[in-house]
Simulated assay, not measured.
Amino acid sequence: MILQGSCWLVTEGTDAIPLNPGDVVFVPHPRVYVLADDPATPAIDFDPVASDESPVDEVEIPGHGAVTETLCAAYYFDRDRVHPVLDELPPVLHLPSAPGRHAALRGAIELLGTELAAPRPGGAVIVPALVDTLLVLILREWFDEHPATGWATSLNDPAILSALRAIHRRPARPWTVENLAREAGLSRAAFAAKFKTTTTMPPLTYLTWWRMTLAARLLRTTGEPLRTISARVGYASEFAFAKAFKREFATSPRQYRDRRSADRH
């Protein structure tokens, strides 16, 4: 987010993008990019060092010329389980500033800037929540202005969206194609065909994908017993859960947890 001044975003495989105050850029895939005063200016490496353990910090890069101030945030995803909506996004999402556009996004950025400029009690809760909100608003604004294709078309389809919400809210329920079709308000055949066309996978395949994604997150972030995680993601037995998990990740839940724990340390 460009708060003051201007610059160019230069990244391999795309044209250089001029950025001005109020512009927002989201880079959804792992790639190297450069912010420069001019596309022809050689890039200078720098190593920002945080002053403390806080996730919020200020970094100043000295130099000559006009001052450019940016507000930056990063999102950390498990690259093995990135949702198809993110995978299908272009290399760079650029939302230029313009009067009357992106009002909600501008409001969130202004509120975040206010919190960062004058830290107050509760900021440690508010700032991460606002950063998460920014991601949702950026994607919403992007899809409002660019015709959805691929998986993202499901977000504008009330029937498929109803089924997805049901899966996301109640992953442990013993879903079948028939009761998901009822959630969508369609016949079984029509729902199955439409779901696969929209999301590129059959309904129960997506259900398993989502359950395993949740299970992997719980294994990484909690110390819950495997039997508890099994039940939370819809498996009646730890054995059935372990079998499904190994089929998806080529490792057992216990080995996955141990490896991720070792990676963090």
Rank of each mutant, 00 (worst) to 15 (best):
A129F: 09
P90M: 03
L19I: 03
T41C: 14
V127A: 07
F239Y: 11
I61A: 11
E58H: 14
L71M: 15
A244Y: 06
A193F: 11
P42G: 04
A184V: 01
F241E: 02
F245L: 02
S237D: 04
A98I: 02
I109S: 06
F245H: 02
R188H: 14
A159Y: 02
T200R: 15
V127L: 07
S97N: 12
R173W: 14
A152F: 04
H168L: 04
P84K: 06
E145N: 13
P62H: 05
N20Q: 15
G13W: 07
L164I: 03
V56K: 02
G122S: 07
L35M: 10
A190K: 10
S162L: 06
R188I: 11
G22P: 05
V34C: 13
A108N: 08
A108C: 10
W142F: 14
E145S: 09
L86T: 10
A242W: 03
R101N: 12
Y235V: 03
K246V: 09
V125P: 09
F143C: 04
A172H: 00
A16T: 05
R227Q: 12
W8P: 00
M212G: 02
L164R: 00
A16C: 07
V82S: 11
R120C: 10
R227L: 12
R140V: 08
W151F: 14
I229F: 00
T221Y: 10
D23H: 04
C7A: 15
M201E: 13
S97T: 05
I229W: 00
R140C: 13
V233D: 00
W209G: 01
M201F: 11
S187N: 05
